[in-house]
Design a protein around this nucleic acid. Structure first.
Lengths: 97, 97
DNA sequence: TTGCAATACCTTGCCTCGCAAGCTATGCTA
DNA sequence: TAGCATAGCTTGCGAGGCAAGGTATTGCAA
């Protein structure tokens, strides 16, 4: 969901997303974890990939942009996330509905 | 973590925790998921189990109370959770640190 | 008195997925 | 020419989620 949210904000590529996540205090345990995730998002039809020649050396970058169904899925996911997060807070603070 | 938090609040048993979670809008996907979790918490030494005769029929209840190291672990876990949750919010809202 | 619902616990087994580890290739710079 | 930064990828183990199904007891309704 977080990767999808990053891509929704603006198209991006794996290597860059790692640092974007770090900027938001969400470091990935390993840099290698991101590529299987991105392929999965693509396989699910939530994002589309396209190659862009690297500016300033290095291999070409594989950019991803969000698809229409990706945007819908993201909306669902973030709603689910918010509900989960509120639920967990309620448990941690000993409240009930 | 949520189960541990419930137990920290007051000792409880599996069947009851299911409804406590529902009360907080955190329904378990299946009632059966809770028992492996509770055993794991016990195996990790975070909770202690004890049997109590059921009031009003049915088999004896297996209550759990939190241990000292369980309380410490819970404090760590909730700190981690809060940091994770803030991170995710940051991503969903397109902020950076 | 038969049967069903509620209470309460537990186990098996598949299948997904996280992630550590390691690999490949390119171009710049010291 | 060695090394670093950039950028991508794959393999393999192991953990663990959870659907499904099982057991036993009590009380109430049909």
């Amino acid at each position: 969901m977080c990767l999808l949210a990053l891509i929704a904000e603006e198209p991006s590529y794996g290597y860059e997303m790692v640092s974007k996540l770090e900027e938001r205090d969400l470091p990935l345990p390993s840099e290698g974890s991101i590529y299987p995730l991105l392929s999965r998002l693509q396989r699910m039809g939530l994002v589309e990939g396209y190659l862009v020649e690297a500016a300033g050396g290095g291999p070409p970058r594989k950019y991803y942009r969000i698809s229409e169904s990706g945007q819908e899925r993201l909306d669902e996911w973030s709603a689910e996330w918010r509900s989960l997060a509120t639920g967990v807070s309620r448990v941690l603070n000993g409240e009930r509905r």
